[in-house]
Design a protein around this nucleic acid. Structure first.
Lengths: 268, 268
DNA sequence: CTTTTTGTGATTAATCGGGTGACTTCTCAA
DNA sequence: TTGAGAAGTCACCCGATTAATCACAAAAAG
């Protein structure tokens, strides 16, 4: 019965979704009640009674709480299903508005270009994930992918892989362990799989301060993405390079020719 | 060329999506550039140059911007598609976490009950929409619905209506205008439709301070929802009552018997 | 070697949100 | 009727966050 922990987490998430602390506490409180007054709510949520009214009013205007205008007035939360649906709608609307507005903004560009040796870094689980998928979908010849952790083999990734392989792209996927290799074989049957020979990828003996490799992606031998997962924070970080002559890409080709794919040498 | 307005709106939306002002400005600025330095960004976004670095760092950690660690370092925004996809992923993850945590929180209830004459009010477009859909889906006998504005006939609503009608529920839908009635006939072929006789529902002569009726829903003659759309703010507000003996419901039945559905008298 | 540009850190100012108490109105019971 | 307590509204304080400016060291550029 970790109801308490769950409540705390729910409050946190609601704040990430844009609610203030008092609003979040009140909503969670009301979710545990069929209906309640300001006093009761205040007692159970530790929100000052006089502030419950403000908080609830905001919640009501967002469609998360209903109010009965009696005296004393009563509040109740909408069902969890209604709440999540409403939140989703809200967000979808915002993202769409962003698409429309940003999509019709003129690009000034200013031809800012040193087109050589560009190595970019980006971080954040989902951002890297999306970039990975996108790069895979743009492949025309060959995709070499090494997956460092089971959790990175997401549904979207599998979809991208299967889509591109059906376009005739050669797909070579490496795994760290046999179970993971089996999983890949099942989900992406048309891929050539292998167990990577790069021992330093392994995170078995990952101590406190050791960084584990997350993904390693080489598309058409000209675009590379390597990601690692920071030890403590679990934050994924990646570097990313484009262009056949790109230094990072060259190194990656060498590396792979050396030991990554024993039977298949992508070097020249 | 209202690029400027669009930029302002994009910045606003990004803030609603959780970014700070500087972060939002920087992202929009970078979206207009193929790549840029802190100086250029500062000039075009009016963000103090020395603060650009912080803002961009946050954006990078969210997967919205990539950084090239050269000197001077260069920044560039990920594509709009990647950005929106990343934002969507983030949000979906949060909402799911909310579902899990709130779903497994114990209900204490405290049997707080004066089960008579409860009239609840709720507001917010999407909240009311979801409640409407849910009430329709719970119907077992009859649904009477009057739609005051075309924009309220959403896809989800149509789905709910068609689902419930296939379960043998009688469906009576009123419209304010003939074109709207035609639209309903097309989208929900199994419903009985009519043009409402309640003239006061019409919003034609809506002046500044006149409130227009949004929806009017009566489910199984025991649950009622009436919504109105505030003149200036466009905010939708609704009241909602349950129970056959509920005062609001009784009034609604009378009202409908009187003039709403000429040929079909739901009163007794 | 000087000058400008770049990046970091600290510092100030303003805004926002959490927290508390005064005060009016309402309800209920004596 | 009246008095006590509860309900609801306001206004205020204070701490934290964020916008905005400044001072300074390192690095490029000329």
């Amino acid at each position: 019965m970790d109801t308490n922990e769950n409540m705390e987490e729910a409050i946190e998430v609601l704040q990430q979704l844009g609610l203030k602390e008092y609003e979040a506490r009140c909503f969670v409180g009301l979710s545990r009640l069929h209906s309640g007054t300001a006093k009761k709510l205040s007692e159970m949520t530790e929100v000052p009674r006089t502030r419950v009214y403000d908080a609830v009013r905001v919640l009501e205007s967002q469609g998360l709480v209903e109010v009965q205008h009696s005296s004393p007035q009563e509040f109740r939360a909408v069902s969890l299903e209604e709440a999540t649906e409403t939140l989703r709608d809200q967000y979808e609307a915002r993202v769409e508005r962003l698409e429309n507005t940003l999509g019709s903004v003129d690009i000034v560009d200013e031809g800012d270009d040193t087109p050589i040796q560009q190595v970019w870094s980006l971080s954040g689980q989902s951002g890297i994930e999306n970039r990975t998928d996108q790069l895979i979908e743009e492949a025309t010849d060959e995709v070499v992918l090494v997956i460092g952790d089971e959790s990175l083999l997401t549904e979207d990734l599998v979809d991208s892989l299967n889509e591109v392989v059906s376009n005739g792209v050669t797909l070579i996927i490496g795994a760290l362990t046999e179970p993971l290799e089996d999983q890949i074989q099942t989900k992406v049957p048309d891929a050539t799989t292998f167990i990577t020979g790069l021992e330093w990828l392994h995170s078995e003996n990952t101590t406190e301060d050791e960084t584990a490799i997350g993904r390693l992606l080489l598309v058409d031998r000209s675009t590379i993405l390597v990601s690692s997962i920071a030890p403590g924070s679990k934050e994924e970080q990646a570097i990313f390079g484009e262009g056949f002559g790109n230094g990072l890409v060259v190194i990656a080709r060498r590396l792979m020719a050396q030991g990554l794919v024993p039977a298949h040498d992508p070097g020249q």
